[in-house]
Design a binder for these strands. Structure first.
Lengths: 238, 238
DNA sequence: TAGTGGTCTAGACCACGTC
DNA sequence: ACGTGGTCTAGACCACTAC
């Protein structure tokens, strides 16, 4: 593990554990150089990670100020899976696998995943129950040359954990899109909808570190249970 | 302007102008060192910006691969304003200012903005018309000690442009939240809703670079006109 | 004036991919 | 073996804040 990543994790833990609270100044870069016995650029790489994640704001001539982290917010931002979220939130929730097997790929999806028509894909469909109600449907389409199959136990736990830990693949990045779509017959049948006429749909394409597209996901959320929180920096395009 | 930022903008332009297309390798870091006559760390800072923005993927031992940028996607992600979006998309749209003046702050908002109750805030309410229909309502609450007033012309153009260019303030970062809420009487009155019972609500807190909270915004979108696109990297928490 | 962060350098060694 | 990106260093100079 790299030094700057270790320092980042160390400082992150210090902030999460409230050893530094909102408004505090972190030790100066020169002090951190002494503390960790590394060069200043190494410290700065660690601080940049904190900066990107919204933990601190740096002010020239002053120092690194710890920002107010809203711990109870839903960080659906970034590339985080349902399971990780659930762990973080301690949600009373349950996953039900309703499909897990090969499916001939549709023409549209074949195009999308850059497969030839007719190639089978691994189709996984799961219901997410929170407090006894089905509020999310997740549909995953996986390229079988990369992920040939998923044990049901892994599907009930975390798909990403299985892909990364068991298959040893490195997930790189994802492109995602959020829209609100009219409900389908399937939504009506499988979800505990109330009078709703729409659901929030999050569609993602997920790529490995070597830029291979290996997964397309459609996640359908009941309106009242959907919340997305994001931290964004203004990039001065000077 | 810093060297690494100039190099970033140069490479970004090259990618946007298709001088490099999806799947291409950028010149190696050592080649870029020669091209730009700078040190390797400076090149790497520029490449990191491309990486964060989703323009490239770096693969050790191989090079920097240009990714597929979906140019017609709505990058509502990051800290971008409606006006900037509109420019980028060439949308046929129009802004109507329906409120622009001081308002005694409510208790809830006072708390939120850390103001004392009763302090006036600058309240700006705007309707966004696209293709003749009102599909977005924007409500901005601005701290008057920082932004005392907004000329109507600026409100019709770009609020951020006015704040940055005319007032000379530096916007730092924002925290935003997306939910789907039931419509209000006001939504019904002001927007061209169809049978909709809900709207997408984007709430943001916007801070200056010195961490001062100066704006709270509530942006209400008609369901069928809302789309959010995001690029996310998986951070290996190794 | 002293201390802070912002930028940049020239060089080093390592890990990985390609051939 | 060679070229690629990943990490790290020790030092330099600048811009800004605080006093």
């Amino acid at each position: 593990m790299s030094k700057f990543n270790e320092i980042f994790l160390d400082l992150e833990a210090a902030i999460l554990n409230q050893r530094f609270i909102s408004g505090d100044l972190l030790p100066s870069e020169n002090e951190l150089v002494k503390t960790y016995n590394v060069s200043r650029e190494t410290i700065r790489k660690a601080l940049n990670l904190l900066l990107e994640k919204g933990y601190i704001q740096k002010i020239q001539g002053k120092g690194s100020i710890v920002l107010d982290i809203k711990r109870f917010d839903f960080p659906v931002s970034g590339l985080t899976s349902y399971k990780e979220l659930q762990d973080a939130q301690n949600m009373n929730s349950q996953t039900i696998v309703v499909s897990n097997g090969l499916l001939p790929v549709s023409e549209e999806l074949a195009n999308h995943l850059k497969l030839s028509v007719g190639t089978p894909v691994l189709y996984l469909e799961r219901l997410r129950k929170v407090h006894g109600e089905v509020v999310i449907i997740d549909k995953d389409y996986l390229v079988t040359s990369i992920v040939p199959s998923i044990p049901n136990e892994a599907a009930e736990d975390s798909l990403y954990h299985y892909i990364e830990q068991t298959l040893g693949l490195s997930i790189g990045y994802a492109q995602k899109e959020i829209t609100v779509d009219p409900i389908t017959e399937e939504d009506k049948r499988l979800m505990d909808l109330q009078e709703d006429t729409h659901v929030v749909v999050v569609r993602s394409d997920v790529y490995l570190e070597d830029t291979t597209l290996f997964q397309h996901t459609e996640s359908r959320h009941r309106l009242d249970r959907f919340r997305f929180v994001d931290f964004a920096r203004r990039r001065n395009s000077l």
